[in-house]
Structure formats: structure tokens, C-alpha cells
Amino acid sequence: MIEVISEARCIDCGICVDVCPTNVFDADEHAHPSIARQSDCQTCFLCEAHCPTDALFVSPLSGPAPEGSPLRDEESLAREGRFGEYRGWIGWGHGRTPGSRNDRNQVFTLRLRALRPPEPAAPGSTTAEKEGPRP
């Protein structure tokens, strides 16, 4: 779930308020957006992807991080290089190459094809033997 909006990095552009598919943030005219409905967060990481200043951190947990967790601590997250990490991977942001260029999805498609379970019995048979071509 979304855990951190970095006070220092956020420039109040409002993009996260727009893009969050479940409307978790509330805009605030006089301050940074707030995490208004954390329980609606679907942990999709898309606000992080769209934030132009790498100001957001989404924890990997489907539920809220416990009190005192490093997943809620901006300083420790910054030390670990968590801010902007996802944007780096997908290549969003100035001067980066789109990550989609490095996609090797076909590796897995081929793998899955090789692993497919043996075809089940043809229609019309309750046993395992095939009944020839499709009716």
C-alpha cells in the first residue's frame, strides 16, 4: 500500500491525485496531497510510476505497514534508494530509455507453451482417449 509522500520531493503537481485508479489521494490547495483513503489502495505502484519527482513510496504489502516499520520511514527508504526506483526500471523520466525496449516476454511465452499440461480428453469422451478431430 501507499505509505509515503516525501515532503521534500513533492512539488504539488497533483498528478498522483489524478492517476490513482482508486482515488486514494486528496488534493490540498495549501499543502501536499494527502493519503486520504489508504484502505482503498490496490498496491498497483502506478502513482509511483507517474510521479515526476520520485516523491512516492508504495510498500509491497497488501495491507498497511505496521507502526515503526522501515517501510514507513522516509529516511531509511531514501538510504535504500527506493524513491524513483520503479521509474528507473520502466524508464520513465527525463533522459531514460523506455523499459519496454528491454522486454523479453517471449521467453516466458515459449516456456509456458512447452509446459502446457497434456491436452484433456476430446469432447464426447469421459475417458482419456481422443476422438479424432474437433466436431
Partner: peptide, 21 residues
């Protein structure tokens, strides 16, 4: 190693779930 790299490039958020935990 080749598949590991391909996985990272294929769906990076798969690894956010692990790296961050």
C-alpha cells in the same frame, strides 16, 4: 541468469514486491 534478467525487464513490479520485503 538469463531468465532472471528477463523477468526483471518483463514486469519490474514483480520485483518491487520482493526487493522491498
Amino acid at each position: 541468469p538469463a531468465e532472471r534478467e528477463a523477468m526483471r525487464c518483463g514486469q519490474p513490479n514483480f520485483f518491487l514486491a520482493f526487493d522491498r520485503a
